[in-house]
Design a protein around this nucleic acid. Structure first.
Length: 487
RNA sequence: GGUCCUGUGGCCGAGCGGCUAGGCAAAGCUCUGCAAAAGCUUCUACAGCGGUUCGAAUCCGCUCGGGACCUCCA
């Protein structure tokens, strides 16, 4: 009997037993990127974390609708009504149409996530594609009395809302202190309250992205799109809402307020938040200028890297930490992850070659249960991995004849390893980086070397090995024969 | 300034009242013409000082580090 899945819920600040609203089905909404520049590794960590959650839920047999938006409009520089939106600003900078920016960085985002082997979401809606829904929602919040119009813009009335609801339920902040500590910002005279935020913003003449609304031409506030799209595709109440931890105090807080003000329901039952990727102990972010781009990672062309690393190495590196802990991105940690991943993948290959040896001397069932237990405790991938490494050690010991495994257990273990490593953790073997022709050539060379070795002509065989090494091809002799590795 | 999180062996990272993960590195061994690779084995830490407890890395207090949020951010 397996343990039940528990998820740490930011809303309750406890690990809650996961029970979907509709048995067998899961609705999950994750806040996607604002596509105004290249996705960096910090962004990737969040989506890799949710990819694991998505994959595991699928693995458990749930039918999951995974919605992840693309923010392509209405995201202001600062929470100021006079701010340009990010796309228009960047567009001016590069002399491009805003939607050109959106397209470029949406493609980049998809490319990055594909490299990290994340599964695409079921629906990937865009903010610009849901202007009508956002206007409708604004109208309804106005009608319900939780917003007001000021000079063509619509603001959410936090004071009114908090008289009836706990506005800071998610962040657990003290509302009074928030009110007193929020910085005085310029150009805020339109707002009645310091914490009020825009649902709809009146377009200034210089704004390129604008839509017609009952309040004149404008564009939606950032927080509204997620409320509108999650309601549309998952209903007013759904199971999981996720995002980075940095979204808790503002974005998600406001989202909850909007949903309550509009639909009178709290949108999600479980709020999951992933922690940040740090560099030298500091959060990786575009504004701090310490971000790593996937291209820099692959090439190793970055002052903090000694060499390039594959996306799978980074995925594995991320899996070695829990999603709610910060993770520091460092060259030597990556180096360690590279070796670790190789060990795990070797184990995965090895288990396929194993032959049953009679009665099992260890319990496959036990390993499996430990792995599931770890995953059921708030998706604890580091612990799951540690048991997978235990399994790997047993696999190697069976290969050495020091442990025994029965035919049934072997089949079980093979299926489990393949399924878990490949499908749940989403790790895939590095693609052979040699083409067919190269491989044929290598077989010829290896054959010549083997012949020389057979004649004890070690001078020739060592010459071949050394020369290949010079051009970056490593020769390894093993019991099963000689293999090569490029790079 | 306010709110909150955090400090684990040479490094990365789990654990969060008793059973003291795992990976990397290191050392020894196996394999091997020699290597390399791979595999096996070994290596026991919880910032400091107090307290609670039969028992604390785990709970409480203080001190000293580090970080996040309060402003766009995953």
């Amino acid at each position: 009997m397996r343990s039940e899945l528990r998820i740490y819920n930011t809303l309750t600040r406890e690990s809650d037993i996961f029970k979907p609203l509709h048995s067998g089905y899961v609705g999950m909404y994750v806040c996607g990127p604002t596509v105004y520049s290249n996705a960096h590794l910090g962004n990737a960590r969040t989506y890799v974390s949710f990819d694991i959650i998505y994959r595991y839920l699928l693995h458990l047999g749930y039918k999951v609708r995974y919605v992840r938006n693309i923010t392509d409009a209405g995201h202001l520089e600062g929470d100021r009504d006079e701010g340009d939106d990010k796309f228009a600003k960047k567009a001016k900078l590069e002399q491009l149409e805003p939607m050109e920016i959106v397209q470029r960085y949406t493609l980049d985002f998809h490319e990055v996530l594909k490299q990290f082997n994340t599964l695409p979401p079921s629906i990937e809606p865009t903010a610009t594609g849901h202007i009508i829904e956002q206007i409708e929602m604004t109208k309804k919040i106005l009608a319900n009395g939780y917003a007001y119009e000021a000079n063509g813009s619509i603001y959410f009335d936090v004071e009114k809302f908090s008289a009836e609801h706990n506005y800071t339920i998610l962040s657990n902040r003290n509302l009074e202190e928030l009110l007193n500590n929020t910085r005085e910002l310029d150009g805020q005279n339109e707002k009645r309250g310091r914490l009020d935020f825009a649902l709809w913003i009146k377009a200034k003449p210089e704004h390129i992205m604008r839509w017609q609304s009952p309040w004149g031409e404008g564009f939606p506030g950032w927080h509204l799109e997620c409320s509108a799209m999650s309601s549309k595709y998952l209903g007013n109440e759904f199971d999981i809402h996720g995002g980075g931890m940095d979204l808790i105090p503002t974005h998600h807080t406001n989202e909850i307020a909007q949903n309550l003000a509009c639909h009178h329901t709290q949108p999600a039952k479980y709020w999951i938040h992933t922690n940040m990727l740090t560099v030298n102990g500091q959060k990786m972010s575009k504004s701090l200028g310490n971000s790593f781009l996937p291209a820099e990672l692959l090439s190793g062309n970055h002052p903090l890297l000694d060499k390039g690393y594959s996306p799978m190495t980074v995925r594995f590196f991320m899996l070695q930490a829990h999603y709610r802990s910060t993770l520091d991105f460092r060259n030597d940690a990556l180096q360690a992850a590279e070796k670790g991943l190789e060990r795990l993948m070797n184990g995965l290959q090895m288990v396929e070659k194993l032959k049953p040896t009679g009665k099992s001397s260890f319990s496959v069932q036990d390993i499996k249960e430990k792995v599931y237990k770890a995953m059921n405790e708030d998706f604890n991938t580091p612990i799951a991995l540690s048991h997978l490494f235990d399994a790997t050690r047993y696999i190697n010991l069976v290969n050495d004849g020091k442990e025994q495994i029965s035919a049934a257990d072997l089949k079980d273990l093979q299926e489990f390893m393949q399924n878990f490593v490949l499908n749940v953790l989403g790790l895939k073997p590095e693609e052979a980086n040699a083409g067919a022709l190269t491989d044929d050539l290598m077989q010829v060379i290896i054959g010549i070397r083997a012949a020389a070795k057979g004649k004890k002509d070690f001078e020739t065989s060592d010459f071949i090995r050394d020369k290949l090494k010079e051009i970056g091809i490593e020769i390894k002799d093993s019991k099963e024969g000689t293999v090569y590795k490029i790079g």
